[in-house]
Simulated assay, not measured.
Amino acid sequence: MTSLYSIPLTFNDGTEADFGRFEGKAVLVVNVASECGYTRQYAGLEELYGKYRAQGLEILGVPCNQFGGQEPGADDVIAEFCERNFGVTFPLTSKANVLGKQQHPLFAELTRDEDGQSAKVKWNFEKFVINRGGELVARFPSAVEPDSEDLMEAVEKALL
């Protein structure tokens, strides 16, 4: 498995880094969209970030327009929407594909199963929990709320 830490990222403000900027932290990666029935989860994600950030949690929102065209805006419009409507302070990447030939390398790694096959993202707001060692330790479907007991337990374990 390729190290997640070497995967390049472009943030919504145009800055570039690699996933290694999160080395030593637990990370919750979420593919997000502004016009989805799950969009209200931004508020819960921000609450989760506020609760666990000091303990080493990072949340990385990855806007994606591949599910129902529910993220049509440009990066600056997305960032402004998230801040204005939900007070989002966690980092967002530039819009990216989570499926197909143009799939972002981060999602290629996160969706690879033990047999090297892809376990495709099914919809907006899927959640991937990565521990401090850079290993994917849990994955949750869109309907799992940020304050769900299972997700919070996975985050707490990832922080150990």
Rank of each mutant, 00 (worst) to 15 (best):
Y52R: 13
A17K: 13
R40Y: 14
L92M: 11
H104M: 00
L106K: 09
G14P: 00
A119N: 08
I7V: 15
K101A: 14
D150T: 04
E149N: 01
L57F: 06
A33F: 07
G68A: 11
V29D: 07
E58M: 08
F67Q: 05
M152F: 00
P72D: 07
Q102Y: 13
A79V: 06
E23L: 04
P8F: 00
Q66N: 10
L110F: 04
A79Y: 01
E135A: 14
S3T: 06
F81W: 03
R112H: 01
S118Q: 12
R40Q: 12
M1L: 07
E80P: 00
L48G: 09
C64P: 00
A43S: 12
L57M: 10
F11H: 12
C64D: 01
F22A: 04
E126G: 13
Y49S: 14
G37H: 14
R84K: 15
L106I: 06
C36Y: 00
E156K: 11
V121D: 01
E71Y: 04
V121S: 00
F11S: 08
G68Y: 10
F11D: 08
V98S: 02
A108E: 11
I59R: 11
Q102I: 00
P72H: 10
T93Q: 12
I130Q: 01
L159K: 00
T93C: 00
A96H: 04
R53K: 12
E35C: 08
A33Q: 05
G56C: 13
N124P: 01
D76G: 06
V29F: 09
S148E: 03
A26V: 03
